[in-house]
Design a protein around this nucleic acid. Structure first.
Lengths: 340, 340
DNA sequence: AATTGGCACTCTGAACACTGGAGTGCTAAG
DNA sequence: CTTAGCACTCCAGTGTTCAGAGTGCCAATT
């Protein structure tokens, strides 16, 4: 059984280890914290914690460091939310204040988050599953080359260049543009794709070749919207924390560049009651990120779309501060996107 | 005076050092390469090269490594272009073959280049100074919120969300849309910006408030097009070559994340007669990249726009192969963009 | 039963000396 | 101009030592 005090010991071990990067021993604990008991007592508690696999001694006679399980217990029950400093709140306000468009807001957000946490920051583009088609635009670049643009009501713009099999004049394009907008404007993306599949039938036979190409491209764009995307900032912070990784940081950096992996990870994380998801150490092993922890929070954008943002760093990170930062940024971002 | 053989010695020093990462001594030179002379002779040549500051001995009695000046001489006069392997050509073809839109092509290109060279790859978005406005689209999101889209003839799309001071109905928007397109379609970006500045005058007084906001946003978008952007891939490769940096790679990674620095660097590099620009070591000092070299080549896109792409890596890199890769990729990209 | 002081033991990491090998510069002879 | 020979230098790796921090355990205390 782990006593109340043992848990307190675990807390200070996590705290001190995160602060100093060195295994923490019984002596240094009684020195730095006023436990009112002797080092020997702490040692007994530590033996208990080790029994429970919450801490481990890297070498036979050195201090202890938390295990993944120890960190997990810490974040679930022991971590106190560190409120942001006024300066940090200030930074959030000014960073996200002057929003221009979606791309810009997200780019600022990811930079902000990496600065606040000194970790790698990740922001997922809003998933557009609930978005609707606002407008479709066709622009002739040459007589056989067309730029197709799909605009959703979340302000997302998706563009393609398409090569037509036969030359198209302006009247024809205007006709297609009017009809396609009439067909799909205001529809959800799924439904729009379905309509586009049968769109060609409206036209007379000799037009169909061109229309089919256009409709196919548009359908692709509409579904491509679904395909998720991530922006990343602060990869340099990984180097700064290099000492926290047993091996090289190379595989970690590679995984980070391979966005697909992170997107899968994001999607598999479950949020706790505060809306924060935390994945620690070996829990990430299937993603090649066994020595890292990921904190994530959902945020919502105008179209009701939900996406995630978060940070990635070594298991040995300042969970309290980082959780606070992720929560705050997610909240501000939701607010900022909801308003605008 | 540096003899013919001395230069050959420099070449093999660069070659061997790049291959082995170890200072190369006179003995190992005569072992590995068939100079018809003894080690002592090589030593004399090396003394000469050191006199000229082309090579340097890191410690009193160790082999020599090339200086920045040595690398410079090497790339200017000694480097033989290593042709790409068939597999590499194949990779380029397949990577750039299935182009969809500009963003996509550039994203593929930068990945490709970082894979081919095992360095950090950089691709600059085509500068649109010569581009023309193709079409402007205004989409009402709500009655007071407008999405403005500027499309150029290079296929670039720039979007903004703008808040109107008073509600606007569809007729009004249609009117503005028609007039603004009539005013600026087909114009170069500079001229378009100039027209937009006086665009508001066309309208009756009580409309002007809204129109002014729209025109200002559009003008901003048109000029923002000019503001250059970079995509980067392969930052993980920096970690792989970490041993080549005396200090930490942290400042390098930071500079890489700070795109502004790289854009300035790109813009200041002068191309040689083959269209390749090379900047070595301390030549990059003002950018905080004193231990890195940058290879760049221009490429051209459809609208006649010119931009650059290249790689960044430690001074000790395989110049021959990397130059060949950069040239090849730039050429293929130009071709691919010119066609499409 | 929990806590404590004491003690023997272990392990790390820094400091130090030692050594072999690779490389250099110089000189004198071919 | 080239070369062999020689004395010299320095690095990197290998032991060795030693102090410090930490542990586990036990008997004594509260």
């Amino acid at each position: 059984m782990v006593s109340e005090r043992s848990l307190e010991v675990l807390r200070v071990i996590v705290h001190d280890y995160v602060a100093s990067r060195e295994p923490v021993g019984s002596k240094s604990i009684v020195d730095r914290h006023s436990f009112g008991v002797s080092a020997a007592t702490i040692r007994n508690d530590m033996a208990l914690l080790e029994e429970e696999e919450l801490i481990v001694a890297p070498h036979t006679s050195s201090g202890r460091i938390p295990t993944d399980k120890g960190y997990r217990l810490f974040v679930d029950h022991l971590a106190d939310l560190k409120p942001l400093s006024p300066a940090q709140r200030q930074a959030i306000e000014t960073f996200l204040g002057s929003s221009v468009d979606l791309d810009d807001v997200l780019a600022r957000t990811v930079r902000l988050l990496s600065q606040l946490t000194q970790q790698v920051a990740l922001v997922q583009y809003p998933s557009l599953s609930q978005a609707k088609v606002r407008h479709i635009e066709l622009v002739a670049l040459t007589s056989t080359r067309l730029l197709t643009v799909v605009i959703t009501d979340t302000g997302h713009v998706e563009q393609r260049i398409v090569e037509l099999p036969v030359a198209a004049d302006d009247d024809f394009l205007a006709d297609v543009r009017a009809r396609v907008n009439a067909s799909v404007s205001g529809l959800g993306l799924d439904e729009a794709a379905a309509r586009l599949a049968v769109f060609t039938e409206q036209f007379v036979a000799d037009r169909r070749v061109s229309v089919a190409v256009i409709a196919a491209t548009l359908a692709e764009q509409v579904t491509a919207n679904r395909q998720e995307k991530l922006i990343i900032a602060g990869a340099a912070n990984l180097v700064r924390t290099e000492g926290d990784f047993a091996g090289s940081i190379l595989p970690v950096l590679e995984a980070v560049e391979e966005q697909v992996v992170l997107l899968r990870l994001f999607s598999e994380m479950q949020a706790d009651e505060h809306g924060i998801s935390i994945s620690i150490g070996r829990e990430n092993a299937p993603f090649g990120l066994a020595e890292t922890s990921v904190l994530a929070s959902g945020y919502s954008s105008a179209g009701g779309a939900v996406a995630r943002l978060g940070v990635l760093g070594p298991t040995r990170m300042d969970y309290s501060s980082n959780i606070a930062a992720v929560r705050a940024v997610a909240r501000y971002l939701s607010k900022s996107l909801g308003e605008s």
